[in-house]
Structure formats: structure tokens, C-alpha cells
Design a protein around this nucleic acid. Structure first.
Length: 894
RNA sequence: GGGCGGUUAGCUCAGUUGGUAGAGCACCGGCUUUACACGCCGGCUGUCACAGGUUCGAGUCCUGUACCGCCCACCA
């Protein structure tokens, strides 16, 4: 007489829209070695998870089950543009998390009959590698040194870095990344990534160099790549240009300094600045055109303090009357606004910050450095020259204070300052010659590409949109570094020894890849390098993104393997993290747009982050991060994958070992339930019993759900629903049919259960296979030929075939029987009796329709509930009365 | 300052098209039941951030507010 709620778990949802069955995938034929031999399946006595990884990794590798089929036509291929992990970075759970998501999708599509192109790249290009090599070996690159073939790095890095040649440095980079790649591959394999390991590439390998250089040359021909001597964002520690996409703001302490500029009429103009050390680089003052305080001064000149430079006062709408005094000094260059003003107001350049971030020597009184008192200017400047910006700031404050041009105290503030994302000191803006790729004039087309792309989750598109709309300059792709893809360009040197940058010498594409620092352009000889009337190589290397924006082309064999490329490009999926939408994703879209006039891929999945329990992004800087391999060993790869699979696209997920334990438990349950289903699997017969037919019908609905969800990359929901279904299957269905399948109701009804058990197990294993590749493969091997990962994704059709079509009328049988069984269990549990306690009398009151359904499951219910007498009584509402057998007399202690 | 997410049980999170609030973990109690003690059965747990609005009915739709997070921004 317990009131309760109706669990809806077994009843198919009549509201659910019918999902068209997908045809064309062959049914898995349910045969096995044992069945063919007429015997029982060979099942392990005590199934275990330990060692499954090693066992199946070896087999998968030997059988090549993840090998890409190069004969597959494009429409059958599912191509993935795998993110090449930065091998010089450390492995962390974030990698495990997001790469698992992609693998789950890869495995699903493979089972759907698609030929999955799943390569793995290694990002061993760029500054992180350089920096790591410097620290690891204790060296620094000096390009002026000759190659030393006998160089051996010290055992332990010394305090003073050893200077090595560029070729030596690159050798060390390659040596270190090779070790890193091994560690990554081992982790990926252990995690069970179904990558085709014959399709690996590196972002600094020959192929990547050739592709990068070829694409660059073509952009150059199209006029999309160009070089320019211009103010460029510059990191003074790395001594290289960087791109807008690699900037980040950091709150940094600073201070306002109020400076006084003299007017010709003897008056003064005051401005506020946070960078007084740039006073010698001041080229103008600026104020808002509508600002009445400064309108009278527009068109006049003022004189800078200390340096006596006459600079104009100009109006510009960017000047903010609210800030400081409303007037600002324009320096070349203090920040990007200075660049805008400088360009739009047509001002001269007076650069004082050198590439090393120190104030460079200047001769006052020379052209461009005119002063009303050159001697005083020189004296003041000499006190600053050679200092870093920060030290020069302190020094100039003293000078200004002494001269009386600093008004009042400096006022400390904290303000956002632009940094290179990998750098430690604020960016400077340095005028230099750099290579650019045009993006601004293609803004609309690139925005359209963003709309054309399918985003998972869709809201991530706005990140792209915002970024492209906010672009302020073209993409600077040259870096003044050593380890990277060189620009395939030389320049002629004229008779006076001047390098002719405007007349680049280009190699033919057949020669690529080339290194202009060692290779010689056609028509020249090696001894003409650096000589008058000879040639010079471009000294720069490409931005790492200039190469990694071509991963689809590199992995797909663009131009090198046209047949392969036609089969995989444009690709189907780009999985990646959201913080690199503005770099990797945007640049890749741009390159494909320029080169192929298409998207590089049809869709993208944006993964979330792994968060610490304190809700911060997990990072290696926190000492408490567990190494991924230790996690895999502790919880099993399937367990860790289970946790990762719970992370929906675009959603951050907390690091949670508890979920890994749950995953491990699920894997264990799968082993044991399978053992049950496969033991005593004879005799086999048609599925006639309503309880069995209901289970099959319900599973068929789950399969349709799962398939539809997977098509939307909703893997987390697939796992959740499959798991829920499976657990109910174990708790209710298996319990109900247990005695029947052992023959309690005769061979015919046992045959119905056995057929249903095997059909459901086959489907369940395949539903779980993308998530738990090891345990599903293990169970599959007990009774099925081949790999579950090459088996066809289950269909509702194949299930319904076993019962001759959906049987909605049977659904009620399982639902009512499960309900009553639950009531019986509850009564026993609350009476603190064991579940095998006999029920002397079970009364079920229910509607006639329900009772009729229950009657078809009566025998199963009676046996699983240990019911001695069952009474079904028609009633308005559902009610159950359970009478338990009296307690057995206590057993006297022996 | 702009944009995008989020706020549901102690914790981590689901919640399709509006229709009686869910799962796992944790906690409590019980149980060796011939697949599983790496197990099983059961129980407890809610101002769905807040305020309005639409509606017969709102966790869900609309408006506003607060807080958290992320991305971006011209930072003198």
C-alpha cells in the first residue's frame, strides 16, 4: 500500500519523434566461434579490467584496425583536423579530456561505416620549444657562429648559457622534441585514441615546411602576403615581432606623471603620461577637436621639456577629454594608439626604444633630432641611454623634477598593459621590416566563413565573430627567431652592399622546402652570399601559427599527394579549445579561404577546460596536478575516458576522480553482466515473451536516440542515457529473466530470453564502444569475431527484426513487472530482510489493462521476487500488498 | 566599456517542444542473491540566484537586477 511515483524508464516515450532508420549499414550477424562449434562461449571465471589496455593496444596495432583506407571516396571519409599538441609543454589532464572527446566521435563515425582519417600532429615549432631547449640544455642560439658538428651539450645546464650555432640549436630542438613526442604517443595510445599512427606529422618537419613555404609563395603571388617596414608589436625579451592575436592585457602597476610643455607665448600645456621615459620620442601633442581648452593651440607648436623639441599640437577624435588633462603626448611609440595617431596625423618617427628594450643611442642635433638646445638634450639623454624602459623612467623623473617640468607627485595606478602572451615584460612597438598576411580587407568574407561553419556549441561562433570584427591590423607572420620555418626568400645585394628588400628572389616550388641561410638562389653561387652584387637570405622564421594554420593541408598531403588530399579535404571536424579561436581557428579559416576558396572543415567542436576543484583552470603551475599516465593506471583508461566523456562541448568540467571510479565500476559491471548474458546462452529461440519484447523495443528507441544525439556531437548525453538504460537493464530486466533463462519455465521461454539477451548485449557493447573501448573489446572478443570497433553501429532495425517490428503493447509488461518487483524489494529492505525472503502473499491491485500486462510477466515476477502466492485484483489505482514470511528462528550460536 | 556563457540537492551536473523537480557522488540503513562485495537493495536531501511579466500552468519563454567565469576593448 505504498504510494509511489511511476518510473518512466521502461516505457517508450510516445511523444518522441520517429527517427528515420538509417539504411545501408549491414547487420552484425550474431555468430561466434563457439556457437558455430555448437558449444558454450568460453568465458573467464573472474573477469577483470587489469591489463586490458596492454592486451588490446597490441592487438589493435597488429591488426591495424584504425588504419585509414586510402581508396575510400570522399563522401565516405570522415576527416579530423587533430590539434597537434605542443610537445614541449607538459602533459596534463586537459589533454586527456579534450582528446577523448574527439576519439569518441572518431569511433562513432568509424562504426557508422565512415572511413576515419585521424592523424596526429606534433607541434614542435616556435618559441615554447626554443625556450625549453635553452633551459633544458643551457644553451642560447647565436646565428653568427659556425656549425660545430662535434658539439655535445653538458650533462647539466650551467649557469651561463653556452652560445651555439643555429644548426646546432635546431639539432637540439629536434632531439628534445623527439623525446617529447614519444611520451605523448605513449599516453595517447594508452588512453585508447584510435589514431592512425602512420599519419603523424610535425609542424617543423619537411612536409610542414614545404606546405608553409608553398602557401606563402602563392599568397605572395596573389598579393595577399606582403612585407612592410612599419611599427610592430615587439617583445623585448624574445626580441621578435608578435601578432595581435598573441597579445594579452595584464593589470600592471604604473603611475601618472604630469609634464609641462612650454608654449611659444611663454605659457604651458600640461599632459599626463605613464611613460615619461618616452619624452625624447615625443612627436606631437594631441587633444580632442571639440575640446575648447586646446582648440586655440591646434596648429601651434610647443617645446618638450628637457629635450627642447618643437612638436605640433594636433586635434584627433581618439583623444579623450576625460582622461588626464585632456591632452596627450604622442610618442613613437608608446602604445597602439600612438601608432594610429602617428599614421593618421602624418607625424615623423623619433624612435628611442631599441629591439632589446633599452634606450638606444641618439645624437641630438642630427637630422630628425633637432632641438632648441641640442647640448642640453644630449646631456639629458645620455643619462637615459642604455637603460631599460623601467630604469629610464626612474631616471627621467629625477631629471624632470630637477628641471621643474614634473608637476606635483607621480600618482601610482594599476592599469592594463599589453604583453606578449608568453612574455614577461610589456610589449614595445618597434619599427621593423616584417611580413604580413592581409586580413583586414577580407574581413567580410572571413566573417561569412564563420557563419558557414557548423559550431558545437553554436554560441562559440560569437567568439570568432567578435574577434574578426575587432581586427585592427593585418597578420604579422615573421618572427626574429631561429627555430621555425624560414621564409623561402632571398634578396639581391646591390653594388654598394645594400640589400634590396623590395626585389625578393623566390625559389621555384619544386625546390621547397629551402633554408635561405644555407641554400643558394638559382643563378647565384654560394660565395656570393652577403657580397656586393650577391644575395642575402631572409633571416626570419614564420610565426608558428603561419604553419599550424595549415594543418589540414599538411596532414592531407596538399600538392604532395593530390589523391589523398582530394579524399580528405575539406575535412569534417576541427576539435579545439576556445582560447585559440582567434588564432588557430581563425588563421586556418583564412588560409583555406585564400588557398582553396573554401572552409577547411565542415564543423568544429570547441572543448571546455578542466577545472580544479576551486573552479580555476587547471594548470601545471599548481603543484597538485596528477600526471595523466598515473591517472590512467589508477582508474583504467576506460574509467578516465568515462569522466572525460561527461564534458559537453564548450562546457568546463571539474577534475573529478570520483567520476573515474564510477566509470571503472561501469566497466566492471559490463564485464559481469556480459558474463551472465553469455553463460548458459542455450537454447535459443524466437523472442515471444512480452518482457523480452519490451526490453528490445526500449533498446531500439535508445539506439535511435543515441544515433541522433551523436550526429549532433552530443556524446555526453549518449553516454548518460545509455548508462541509465544499462543500469536499469541490469537491475530489473536481468533479475526478472534470470530464472527463466536457466530453464525454470521450460526451454522455449528460456530461448526467448537467451535470444533477447544476446541481441541486447551485442547492441549495448557497440553503444558503449566509443566510450569504453577496452572493456567493450574484451567482452566482444568472448563471443564475436573481429573488433567491436570495426563492427557496425547498432540500428533499431536490427533489434526490431528479432521481434518482427516494434512491440509497444509489450512495453507495459516490463514496466509493470519492474514496478511490482521494486515494491517487493522495498518492503524487504525496509523490513531489513534479505531479498531472498519468501513473499507468502503478494496482492497487486491495478487497472485491468495493467493487470493483463503484468500477467504476461507473472512467472518472471514470482521467481525473481520469491513470491509464493500472487493475487491480481482489479482496482482504480495501483496498490501493492506484500506479506513476508515470518522470520526464521534465530540460529543459536555454535 | 562590449560580447558570450553560467547560477537547480552538501558536491559535480542533467533537465528536449512550458505540464507533479532528476542522476551520480557523498551520507544513512540493510543484504553474501548461483553475473558482479570493484557487488546488491532501499532511504534522506530543493525558496530551481533575485524581482517583475506572459500563461490555466514557468526550472524552461520575455524584461530587468545581482553574482561567478570566459573572450574582447584606443591602456595617454
Amino acid at each position: 500500500m505504498t504510494p509511489f511515483r511511476l518510473p518512466r524508464r521502461w516505457s517508450p516515450d510516445p511523444e518522441r519523434p520517429a527517427i528515420a532508420r538509417r539504411a545501408g549499414v549491414p547487420l552484425t550477424v550474431m555468430t561466434s566461434k563457439q556457437e558455430r562449434a555448437g558449444g558454450a562461449f568460453a568465458l573467464p571465471e573472474k573477469p577483470a579490467l587489469e591489463g586490458l589496455e596492454r592486451k588490446w593496444l597490441a592487438r589493435w596495432e597488429a591488426d591495424g584496425i584504425y588504419r585509414f583506407d586510402r581508396t575510400a571516396p570522399r563522401e565516405r571519409v570522415f576527416a579530423i583536423d587533430t590539434p597537434p599538441p605542443t610537445v614541449s609543454g607538459s602533459l596534463h589532464v586537459g589533454h586527456v579530456f579534450s582528446y577523448t572527446h574527439t576519439d569518441i566521435l572518431a569511433r562513432y563515425h568509424r562504426m557508422r561505416g565512415r572511413v576515419v582519417f585521424y592523424p596526429m600532429g606534433w607541434d614542435d615549432n616556435g618559441l615554447p620549444t626554443e625556450r625549453r631547449v635553452q633551459n633544458y640544455f643551457g644553451v642560447r642560439c647565436d646565428p653568427s657562429l659556425p656549425y660545430d658538428p662535434s658539439f655535445v651539450p653538458p650533462e647539466k645546464p650551467g649557469k651561463t648559457p653556452i652560445a651555439v650555432s643555429r644548426p646546432n640549436f635546431i639539432e637540439l630542438c629536434e632531439r628534445l622534441t623527439a623525446e617529447d613526442e614519444k611520451a605523448f604517443e605513449e599516453l595517447w595510445r594508452h588512453l585508447g585514441l584510435s589514431v592512425d599512427w602512420s599519419l603523424t606529422y610535425s609542424t617543423v618537419g619537411k612536409t610542414a615546411q614545404r606546405v608553409s613555404q608553398r602557401s606563402f609563395l602563392r599568397l605572395l603571388k596573389k598579393g595577399i602576403a606582403y612585407q612592410l617596414e612599419a611599427p610592430t608589436l615587439w617583445d623585448v625579451d624574445f626580441r621578435t615581432a608578435v601578432a595581435q592575436a598573441e597579445l594579452e592585457d595584464r593589470e600592471t602597476p604604473g603611475a601618472y606623471h604630469k609634464l609641462r610643455f612650454k608654449r611659444p607665448d611663454g605659457g604651458a600645456v600640461e599632459i599626463d603620461t605613464t611613460r615619461p621615459e618616452l619624452l625624447p620620442a615625443c612627436v606631437a601633442l594631441v587633444a580632442h577637436p571639440d575640446d575648447p581648452r586646446y582648440q586655440p593651440l591646434f596648429g601651434t607648436e610647443v617645446v618638450t621639456p628637457l629635450f627642447g623639441v618643437r612638436v605640433p599640437v594636433k586635434p584627433h577624435p581618439l583623444a579623450n577629454p576625460e582622461k588626464g588633462t585632456g591632452a596627450a603626448m604622442i610618442c613613437t611609440f608608446g602604445d597602439v594608439t600612438d601608432v594610429t595617431w602617428w599614421r593618421e596625423l602624418g607625424l615623423p618617427v623619433r624612435a628611442v626604444i631599441g629591439p632589446d628594450g633599452r634606450l638606444r643611442p641618439v645624437t641630438w642635433g642630427s637630422p630628425g633630432w633637432e632641438s632648441t638646445d641640442a647640448e642640453a638634450a644630449q646631456k639629458a639623454y645620455d643619462a637615459l641611454a642604455g637603460l631599460t624602459a623601467v630604469k629610464a623612467r626612474a631616471a627621467i623623473v629625477e631629471l624632470l623634477r630637477a628641471s621643474g617640468d614634473l608637476i606635483g607627485d607621480v600618482r601610482p595606478i594599476t592599469h592594463p598593459v599589453k604583453y606578449y602572451e608568453k612574455g614577461d615584460r610589456p610589449l614595445e612597438i618597434i619599427t621593423s621590416r616584417q611580413w604580413f598576411i592581409k586580413t583586414i580587407e577580407f574581413r567580410d568574407a572571413l566573417l561569412a566563413r564563420g557563419r558557414e561553419l557548423q559550431w558545437y556549441p553554436p554560441f562559440m561562433q560569437s567568439r570568432y565573430q567578435n574577434w574578426v570584427e575587432g581586427l585592427t591590423g593585418d597578420w604579422c607572420i615573421s618572427r626574429q627567431r631561429f627555430f621555425g620555418v624560414p621564409f623561402p626568400v632571398w634578396y639581391p645585394i646591390d653594388g654598394n652592399g645594400q640589400v634590396q628588400y623590395d626585389r625578393p628572389i623566390l625559389p621555384s616550388e619544386e625546390r621547397l622546402p629551402i633554408d635561405p641561410s644555407t641554400d643558394v638562389p638559382d643563378g647565384y653561387t654560394a660565395d656570393q652570399r652577403g657580397m656586393p652584387n650577391g644575395f642575402a637570405g631572409d633571416p626570419d622564421v614564420m610565426d608558428t601559427w603561419a604553419t599550424s594554420s595549415l594543418t589540414p593541408q599538411i596532414a592531407g598531403g596538399w600538392e604532395d599527394d593530390p589523391d589523398l588530399f582530394a579524399r580528405v579535404f575539406p575535412m569534417d571536424l576541427r576539435p579545439q579549445a576556445h582560447e585559440i579561436i582567434r588564432t588557430w581557428l581563425f588563421y586556418t579559416v583564412a588560409r583555406a579561404h585564400f588557398e582553396h576558396d573554401s572552409l577547411p572543415w565542415r564543423s568544429t567542436t570547441i572543448s571546455g577546460w578542466v577545472l580544479d576543484p576551486d573552479r580555476k583552470k587547471m594548470s601545471k603551475s599548481k603543484g597538485n596536478v596528477v600526471t595523466p599516465m598515473a591517472l590512467l593506471e589508477q582508474h583504467g583508461s576506460d574509467g578516465v575516458r568515462y569522466w572525460a566523456a561527461g564534458g559537453r562541448p564548450g562546457t568546463d568540467t571539474a577534475f573529478d576522480p570520483g567520476q573515474m571510479k564510477v566509470g571503472r565500476r561501469l566497466a566492471m559491471k559490463l564485464l559481469n553482466a556480459s558474463r551472465f548474458a553469455l553463460s548458459n546462452a542455450e537454447p535459443r529461440g524466437p523472442v515471444t515473451v512480452p518482457v523480452d519484447r519490451a526490453m528490445i523495443t526500449s533498446l531500439a528507441a535508445l539506439v535511435d536516440d543515441a544515433t541522433a544525439l551523436f550526429e549532433e556531437n552530443q556524446y555526453a548525453t549518449v553516454l548518460e542515457r545509455t548508462e541509465r538504460w544499462f543500469w536499469t537493464y541490469c537491475d530489473d530486466y536481468l533479475e526478472l529473466v534470470k530464472s527463466r533463462r536457466y530453464g525454470a519455465q521450460g526451454p522455449e521461454l528460456a530461448g526467448s530470453a537467451n535470444t533477447a539477451l544476446l541481441a541486447s548485449l551485442s547492441v549495448l557493447l557497440r553503444l558503449f564502444a566509443p566510450f569504453l573501448p577496452f572493456v567493450t573489446e574484451e567482452v566482444w572478443s568472448w563471443w564475436q569475431p573481429g573488433s567491436v570497433h570495426r563492427a557496425a553501429w547498432p540500428t533499431s532495425a536490427e533489434l526490431l527484426e528479432t521481434i518482427g517490428g516494434p512491440d509497444e503493447s509489450a512495453a507495459l509488461a516490463l514496466e509493470r513487472a519492474s514496478l511490482v518487483l521494486g515494491e517487493v524489494r522495498k518492503t524487504k529492505s525496509e523490513a531489513k530482510r534479505k531479498l531472498s525472503t519468501p513473499v507468502t502473499r503478494l496482492v497487486v491491485r491495478d487497472t485491468p489493462e495493467h493487470l493483463e500486462a503484468l500477467r504476461t510477466a507473472e512467472a518472471d515476477l514470482v521467481s525473481s521476487g520469491f513470491v509464493q502466492s500472487l493475487h491480481l485484483e482489479p482496482a482504480e489505482a495501483f496498490e501493492v500488498e506484500v506479506t513476508l514470511a515470518a522470520d526464521e528462528p534465530p540460529v543459536p550460536a555454535s
